[in-house]
């Protein structure tokens, strides 16, 4: 049974979905990611879907679930790299994904997570780098 690898990069977890997701794989990913967020004390999750040729309502629901679950655990998720044809299709399908943060690519997604992390630090009153 194959698994989707989860990489740790600093405060963040990085997942690249490269295979056609079937139901069990999607469920395993939800379980693995939430466990890793807790174990690694991750502050953010980056999900790269640039290799996905379609996002149907099943995969869309999985992405929304992951975003909600990790947010509950204190880690923001960002979905990056959606193909233009996929974006056109999911909007016509009627899927808004409005609870899922998205960014154009890995760089922009990472920038979003870092900005989020810095924002959190300020909210705590802990200036990361006081001049």
């Amino acid at each position: 049974m194959d698994k989707i690898p989860i990489l740790k990069m600093g405060h963040f977890l990085l997942v690249t979905i490269q295979v056609d997701m079937h139901d069990r794989l999607a469920m395993t990913l939800q379980d693995d990611l939430t466990s890793r967020v807790v174990k690694d004390r991750a502050k953010g999750v980056l999900i790269d879907i640039s290799s996905l040729e379609i996002v149907d309502s099943f995969i869309g629901r999985m992405l929304a679930n992951i975003a909600a679950m990790t947010r509950t655990l204190g880690a923001e998720s960002v979905v990056v790299g959606m193909q233009p044809a996929v974006a056109i299709t999911i909007v016509e399908l009627g899927m808004s994904l409005h609870n899922v943060r998205t960014a154009l690519n890995v760089d922009k997604g990472m920038a979003l997570l870092i900005a989020q992390l810095n924002g959190l630090a300020e909210d705590d009153g802990n200036e990361p780098n006081p001049e």
């Binding site: 193909q83 044809a85 299709t89």
Partner: peptide, 11 residues
């Protein structure tokens, strides 16, 4: 885009 829409509907 046609392919993506049809494959998604089929799914």
């Amino acid at each position: 885009v046609d392919q993506t829409k049809m494959v998604t509907a089929a799914s």
